[in-house]
Amino acid sequence: MTRPILDVENLHIRYGGAPTDAVRGVSFTLGRERLGIVGESGSGKSTVGRGLLRLLPSAKITADKMRFEDVELLSLTEEQMLGVRGRRMSMILQDPKFSLNPIRKVGDQVAETYLRHFKCSRKDALQKAIAMLEAVKIRDPERVCEQYPHEISGGMGQRVMIAMMLLADPDVVIADEPTSALDVTVRLQVLNILDGLVRDRGIGLIMISHDLNLVRNFCDRVLIMYAGRVVETLAARDLDKAQHPYTRGLIAAQPRIGGARAPLAVLDRRPEWLEEVSR
């Protein structure tokens, strides 16, 4: 593998006023691959994603290393960070209902990404936006551009978000629970579109999710987080061969189609998991 796009070492994040760190010593690298981060709510997985983009104004972020291509993210000024955020590294949020601006037309919102980062006319940016909406398989993109977020469905909204985030052609996309708000049938379509675009463009993807089936199917490698630490790193196809009792517990707790109807295994949380460091 060539030099990783993203190299994070010993990342600590503490929210303002919190007595302990939300993320405690996370290290990982990201190449041109799809990396999943799974864990329960409160395990710090979303905090890692937001920390990478420095979207946590009140939090204290420290790390031995947080290198993104040629830049050290932690040493950038906020002004320099604006050139990275959305342009070279972007984030797809969970729920299109809450992350799209309800009072602006879809086309304008998507085009804004392009206008913000490249010198061009509004008309050109809108053309780019339309082309991108087409790439995420939205039928009749010209019409959708003129619509407001409440006029489009959830699945379409999420595709609009994807279009918006990929428009500036970033090198890393962080997807924070991109499909948890969607129905199963729509979820697969959206994931397949995201997957196709990420592969074609050679983007590094970080997929943050609590859904083991999702990371199994749509990621190459998986980090499992517990209480702010990475407890295990696995190839996604080896998820069933997980060693750590926490990972195994999560897998066993999941009801499966065609599974036995015996009571589901319940996690027996061990205090020592809190201090373990991944091998």
């Binding site: 329960e40 707790a253 999941q254 009801p255 109807r261 319940v266």
Partner: peptide
């Protein structure tokens, strides 16, 4: 709910 917690609730409902 998380999968781990979902398992507890489903078991409870079943019981």
């Amino acid at each position: 709910l998380d999968v781990s917690v979902q398992a507890e609730i489903l078991n409870l409902l079943q019981r």
